[in-house]
């Protein structure tokens, strides 16, 4: 018989709230990211970490200590850190002779590694290299994927990871039109084997119509990514992870049809009406005599007996 582990109730209201926030939900919170440094990091990488962190500041944590981790050998310490921080995305930066300016992008499902991709960062230009006005904190960026992201499993995984990392606030019902001001582009250059990442600020200009004319201004950071090693989730696991809860699936509406003219037609079911019991006008002449009533009562009693 397994020993029943002691289950401790949260003692404070605050503690309870924290635990509740961490529980799995139907509609999930925005994914949280942690930024980690490996054994060694170059100056470029520490700038990279800081700049990317400032892009996703509201939903991320940067950890400043050096960590002697090798995620492709042993991912458990990172899983532990993610669980502790209640986050599911990580960006791990390390620099070595073999893999200069190395960054690992990864994510977990149910506190276990789902997939991760190792990329090298090249031709880096940071936020401060562009002397322009930056975007507001926590704006939801528009993501453009240009070029080929479908040919290899690594590229499509990288695309999915990048969307997960940079799509900002999730499950938004509405967005303020003035709040759309940031653009991230990911251009896959298959000839060079690079993915170029750029970041722009949107400027809305008059166009003489309702929809504005768009102009862009580069705000940084800009860098190229070169795919190195990768660990891709098995299809089964990915399928489980991408499952939508039964409760959130839209139910088909019954008995509502649209015809070719665009009119909505509905079918309504009504129960049979009891017309014989309808109360009509009361008249003295139609009233039942005491004898009649007595007979009726007797009949009713007989039926019930």
């Amino acid at each position: 018989m397994p020993v029943l582990q002691r289950v401790v109730k949260p003692t404070t209201r605050r503690g309870k709230k924290v635990l509740l926030k961490r529980e799995p939900k139907l509609i999930e919170n925005t994914k949280h990211t942690i930024f980690l440094k490996g054994r060694k990091t170059s100056e470029l990488l520490s700038h990279f970490l800081k700049d990317v962190y400032s892009l996703k500041k509201l939903h991320s944590t940067i950890l400043n200590r050096k960590n002697d981790y090798l995620p492709f050998e042993d991912v458990i310490p990172i899983e532990y850190l993610l669980k502790k921080q209640d986050s599911s995305l990580f960006i791990f930066a390390s620099n070595s002779k073999k893999r200069p300016n190395n960054v690992i992008l990864g994510r977990t499902y149910d506190f276990h590694l789902l997939d991760m991709i190792e990329v090298g960062v090249e031709s880096y230009r940071g936020l401060c290299d562009f002397q322009t006005e930056k975007v507001m904190l926590g704006t939801k960026p528009i993501l453009h994927f240009i070029g080929d992201f479908e040919t290899s499993a690594e590229l499509s995984t990288l695309k999915s990871l990048l969307v997960d990392m940079f799509c900002g606030e999730r499950n938004l019902n509405a967005i303020a039109l003035a709040g759309i001001e940031h653009v991230l582009t990911f251009t896959s250059d298959t000839k060079e084997g690079k993915i170029q990442v750029k970041s722009y600020r949107i400027m809305l200009k008059k166009s003489g119509e309702n929809t504005p004319r768009i102009e862009l201004e580069e705000i940084g950071p800009a860098f190229d990514l070169v795919v190195r090693r990768s660990k891709i989730a098995s299809e089964d696991l990915m399928k489980i992870a991408c499952r939508t809860p039964h409760e959130l699936k839209a139910k088909p509406k019954k008995n509502i049809v649209k015809n070719k003219l665009g009119t909505t037609l509905g079918r309504v079911h009504i129960k049979a009406q009891r017309i014989n019991r309808l109360q009509t006008r009361k008249m003295k002449g139609l009233r039942k005599t005491p004898e009649e009533r007595k007979a009726e009562r007797l009949q009713r009693n007989k039926r019930s007996a």
């Binding site: 529980e23 799995p24 939900k25 139907l26 999930e28 919170n29 994914k31 599911s88 994510r107 977990t108 499902y109 149910d110 506190f111 789902l114 999915s160 969307v163 997960d164 799509c167 938004l172 019902n173 509405a174 967005i175 303020a176 039109l177 003035a178 309702n210 929809t211 504005p212 989730a233 990915m238 992870a241 991408c242 499952r243 809860p245």
Partner: peptide, 30 residues
């Protein structure tokens, strides 16, 4: 800009349709 807009606290906001890009969940379905 073609999506239906509504005014929330004197700011114009558009209603976004549900996302079609399948992203994995963070935790299990409760």
């Amino acid at each position: 800009w073609q999506l239906p807009t509504e005014k929330v606290d004197e700011v114009y906001a558009v209603k976004l349709p549900p996302s079609t890009f399948a992203l994995p969940r963070e935790k299990r379905i409760p």
